[in-house]
């Protein structure tokens, strides 16, 4: 057998092995991707880090203090690790390591450190896909601040709270929280960063501050 022919058979074998792995053993691919992803490379010597940590802790504390005053979800939750993220730009979805066998169902709320991050979009036997609030197709009714002003959370790389009544009083730092059917009421989502008038001048809309980086989320809780 010539070396060129041998080379060809090796390639065909590799194609068959890869096709088999893609269809029947995709978890090895997730591991390969996880190995390619950078680990936590932040240095403790970075002077900006303590301040950033403090700011994040303050934001989280603020969110938690509001959450403590809201009705508690007593139904419990299912923990899951995050395996991988949608690789392209036009969706923001996470694959998590719990599925139908662990009691996960489509439409359930997903939280990270008590903060709502998205909804279960698809369920497999031992995995599920979570569509996060950073997905451009994500939309959900929410409420703003202690007065419970109605708004619509519109997802995307920079999510915003839209359709806020023009006369409503919303301020920077007000927390927005969940108020949608099928989702535990009052889960904190984000805080108002700035407000403006919508393009059609009929409503207010607000840009949002998030107390976490979705790209570094490694474990989540799913509402039962």
């Amino acid at each position: 057998m010539s070396s060129r022919r041998k080379h060809l058979w090796v390639l065909i074998g590799a194609v068959a092995a890869l096709a088999f792995a893609i269809v029947f053993e995709p978890a090895y691919g997730w591991r390969l991707r996880a190995a390619l992803e950078p680990q936590d490379v932040m240095s403790a010597a970075d002077p900006a880090l303590p301040a950033q940590n403090q700011a994040l802790e303050a934001q989280l504390a603020s969110l938690e203090s509001i959450a403590a005053q809201l009705p508690q979800n007593s139904s419990g939750s299912i923990p899951a690790v995050v395996y991988s993220q949608y690789p392209f730009d036009f969706h923001n979805e996470l694959l998590i390591g719990s599925g139908a066998n662990q009691g996960i169902a489509v439409g359930k709320a997903v939280t990270f450190q008590g903060v709502f991050i998205g909804l279960v979009a698809r369920v497999f036997s031992d995995e599920a896909v979570v569509r996060t609030v950073f997905d451009p197709s994500f939309k959900m009714p929410v409420r703003v601040g202690s007065h419970g002003i109605d708004a619509l959370l519109e997802g995307g790389p920079d999510p915003k709270a839209a359709s806020i009544a023009k006369t409503a009083s919303v301020a920077m730092g007000d927390v927005i929280y969940t108020a949608a059917p099928g989702v535990p009421y009052g889960l904190p989502v984000a805080a108002i960063a700035a407000t403006s008038t919508s393009a059609d001048h009929l409503f207010q809309e607000a840009s949002l501050n998030f107390a976490y980086d979705i790209n570094t989320v490694e474990s989540v809780l799913i509402a039962k």
Binding site: L8, L11, I12, A14, V15, L18, A19, A21, I22, V23, P26, Y28, G29, W30, L32, R33, L36, Y83, S84, Q85, Y86, P87, F88, F90, H91, L95, R122, F124, E127, V129
Partner: peptide, 23 residues
């Protein structure tokens, strides 16, 4: 066949869920 190996290797690394999606 060389291209097919590269192609499937990239799909193997990028496919992020049990089902193979449209993208």
């Amino acid at each position: 066949w060389e291209l097919a190996v590269f192609d499937l290797l990239a799909v193997f690394a990028l496919n992020w869920e049990p089902a193979i999606g449209g993208s």
